[in-house]
Write a protein that binds this DNA or RNA. Sequence first.
DNA 1: GTTTGTTCGTAAGGTTTACTAACAAACGTG
DNA 2: CACGTTTGTTAGTAAACCTTACGAACAAAC
Lengths: 415, 415
Amino acid sequence: MDAQRGPVTEPTPPTSPVASELHAPSAPSAVIFGRSRALRPTGKVLPEHARTHNRALVLQTLYTAGAQSRADVARQTGLTRVTISDLVGDLIAEGLVIELGQREDARPGKPATLIDVDRAAFHIIGVDLSEHEVFRGAVVGLDGQIIDRDEIARAGATGEAAVQLVEQLVERLLARTTTPVLGIGIGSPGVVDPNGVVRSAPNLGWSDVALQERIAARFALPVHVGNDANVAVLAEHGSSQHDDLLLVKVGHGVGAGLIIGGRPVVGGGFAAGEIGHVVVGTDGGPRCACGRDGCLETWVAAPRLTAQLAELDGDGATDTDAAASARDDILREAGRRLGIVLAPVVGALNLSEVVLSGPAQLLDGAFHEAAVDTLRKRTMAEFNRDLRLRMSEQAEDIVLRGAAVMVLSGQLGVT
Amino acid sequence: MDAQRGPVTEPTPPTSPVASELHAPSAPSAVIFGRSRALRPTGKVLPEHARTHNRALVLQTLYTAGAQSRADVARQTGLTRVTISDLVGDLIAEGLVIELGQREDARPGKPATLIDVDRAAFHIIGVDLSEHEVFRGAVVGLDGQIIDRDEIARAGATGEAAVQLVEQLVERLLARTTTPVLGIGIGSPGVVDPNGVVRSAPNLGWSDVALQERIAARFALPVHVGNDANVAVLAEHGSSQHDDLLLVKVGHGVGAGLIIGGRPVVGGGFAAGEIGHVVVGTDGGPRCACGRDGCLETWVAAPRLTAQLAELDGDGATDTDAAASARDDILREAGRRLGIVLAPVVGALNLSEVVLSGPAQLLDGAFHEAAVDTLRKRTMAEFNRDLRLRMSEQAEDIVLRGAAVMVLSGQLGVT
DNA sequence: GTTTGTTCGTAAGGTTTACTAACAAACGTG
DNA sequence: CACGTTTGTTAGTAAACCTTACGAACAAAC
């Protein structure tokens, strides 16, 4: 009974070198385990990759916890003081970290030299192309604060004209800061692939536009491009406690950004989060531009809701109570429809947090309540007990800040 | 215009050592980027971790591509022949890899010594607790082939009695092989946490049962426990080309297993894939045991479908054509309901592959067709053009083999 | 039969990385 | 003031992978 049990740590003795008779050279075989993830490391790992990783770990520790001594960082990361000193030395030489002088509080021992990410050393350019009327951009600090902003009217521009508007906007933003720029982050509507090619953005008339390449070539800076909702969820993730997070962005259309296990989800066709044209319910619904009835967008897209509410006002409601009630009915139904679509997603992913982003006057009331209520009624309470559905706190700047997060991740973090 | 642009590779000159006046020791600050993934490496990485990774890479390469020379492995992995020789030396010493003698085909140069994973060196014990009437188990080869199998009638056992049945089954399986056993993999219904504790499995009367600990202590072997559907999707992933995969397991209940970006999804409450009690549609439905109307299980769980079909036979259909048609109607409606639930998930994740596992006589016909049809009608064709919904090819043994994959991953792969 | 070129696997030595051990500096405390 | 504590650095070591170099073994061409 014992001979047959052999954990890897106590292997069987090495086999005879020539065993070709015993084990016929196996053909590539059935190998049902072939693609098992754990057995499929992404590629080789060299010591220098470890170094890169640890470097990012130090940066992250400083960034999150704020100014502290090298010894503090060592304790937090588990690396030794020696190694931390070495890594910090590199980071200081690169201008990413600075010494802030000695710690002031009274403790025994040699006083600590405080170090921190040099939060004033770089700015980031964030650009939001998701609004229908205007392209907005900002100079963003490393801590996410908006330092300066600018915008450029879209005026219906599409195709190449729209690309040139983006270039103009970036140019103007770059002129507004004298601090070195870490990179440019752009949140675009539509389907964006990992190379920053906008595969398809009907509103902008874009199809396979190599935006990342264009902007990078023009400004000689690192450029990152992502879908607007996927970018927005990055900003939200910063202030969230959870590693699984779904952000629903209600605007001209409806899109979602998804983070699972701390990693953004892109999807096989790079179209993850495109839930605007999923059909809701089994009772029909308004005709959608895509040709079907009852797409999510027909229920909850901002222009639709606004139009419905305007129609209500047009009916000239005399009683203000009744008007408010009718208004809430519309918003409640929209929220319910969103809940119906989200329920299967929340159930399948066992999500703990869903965030709503969009016009507060539309979403932050009856809409929100109905969505929460519907979600609870349609998922298993036992599994989703601690589910939260909340409004985003990032308001209008969510894409701008998310774009900045994308740059920070891409430039300073582990790829 | 140039001074302000500084990629990390061309940083600003180091700041003066004492800059405390310029940069007030920043409080932990707003830090909206704080939890950005790329900036939040999981922990320190030491050179030995790189070694572990590369070791797994070599194993994976051999496992997938079959017998080959050290030089072949070097070319495939990108590591040098020297390093590969070193790693392979370790693996041979551990008994995981064997030399098979010289390559026979005629080529210039020194003939290659073929090496391969020693596919006969270990067996794996796989256990499937997901069936209602019986616990099934098997001795599984490293390539996933079922070498021997056994089962034990559950006879309604719950709680401690059920645990003891699992122990008996494992004991009997271990007695059926004289080959060293790499580990024991168990697929259980219910919610299973990463430590192998079954948090909740109502059918088995389990609540916080430390199954992994129990079995590991009893047999002194590595043990891995997972949810049955989550385990099943591992088996399917082996034969799939995609890194995003959803498996729907229809049996006594309905559950799903999900792999995104090559990684299993567990969910915040470890209940990912529990879609059986998500409400389908907006037109009510049969009353569910959980108290609500129209849960997915009320539409597609195997016992429900079987009962509906039996009822049909009970009506004594004389015309066989009409009977077949009525039968298909029932299955079609069930398939449609599944499609309705899956559509938002497929849309949100931009899934490229969905797999059905369960009784073929129920699923592989009208049910399947209706599910495909519904899914296409309810998602955006443009984004999900290459979506496939197919039956699993693993049949009854999917959980057994998935459990074995779990062990193989856990014992030989990167954690 | 000899030469040439190729391929394989190994050996030797160097570089990078992070570790342990040890220490000086600087501080509070008794 | 002696002592313990804490910080950050220096020196040396171990691990991991690299480059370079080499012998062995073969096919192909002469």
